[in-house]
């Protein structure tokens, strides 16, 4: 059973002390706030081999994402998006693009299994690039579309 760290437990520790936690330790919200406030350093205990394998297995599952780009057409959109994906070692599996009266809609299916960034980081990078170019760029798990449009 995983260990649970609560606020009360953190309250007993001195400021700026260290606390050993393992990967599956549950740290409650209130405890985490106090950890930040007291500048307590969390030390991750070396994970066992079986834990590491399990983690890798679960990481491998989350694998395909869909990138959508919507906005006014201009030069270099695909290059920019593809650049960000390449930097993160994300493979583009398929692209579909339509331009209707200057209105640009691009959809990419991407393979995230070897991504150097985790999902949220990549999502943020794409969103930021979108803002710079005046476009709406989103990244979502393929599951969202599969569940919604396929039975």
């Amino acid at each position: 059973m995983p260990e649970v760290i609560t606020r009360d437990r953190i309250a007993e520790l001195p400021d700026r002390s260290q606390l050993k936690v393992s990967v599956d330790t549950i740290i409650t919200r209130a405890a985490r706030e106090l950890i930040k406030k007291k500048s307590i350093e969390l030390q991750l205990i070396e994970e066992s081999r079986s834990q590491r394998e399990e983690k890798q297995k679960s990481d491998q599952e989350a694998e395909r994402g869909i990138v959508t780009v919507v906005g006014h057409d201009r030069v270099g959109i695909i290059a920019r998006v593809a650049g960000i994906l390449a930097e993160s070692n994300v493979n583009i599996l398929d692209i579909s693009q339509t331009v209707l009266q200057g209105f640009f809609a691009m959809i990419m299916i991407v393979d995230l299994s070897c991504s150097r960034n985790n999902f949220s980081e990549l999502r943020q990078k794409l969103e930021d690039a979108g803002e710079e170019m005046g476009l709406k760029i989103t990244l979502q798990h393929e599951d969202v579309f599969r569940y919604m449009h396929r039975v």
Binding site: T68, D94, T98, I107, K136, T138, F145
Partner: peptide, 19 residues
């Protein structure tokens, strides 16, 4: 790999969430 979703389907989902 065939493209598994139509543009309309993808944009419909995005619209539901964003708007």
């Amino acid at each position: 790999m065939p493209f598994s979703y139509t543009t309309d389907e993808v944009l419909e989902t995005i619209r539901m969430v964003e708007l």
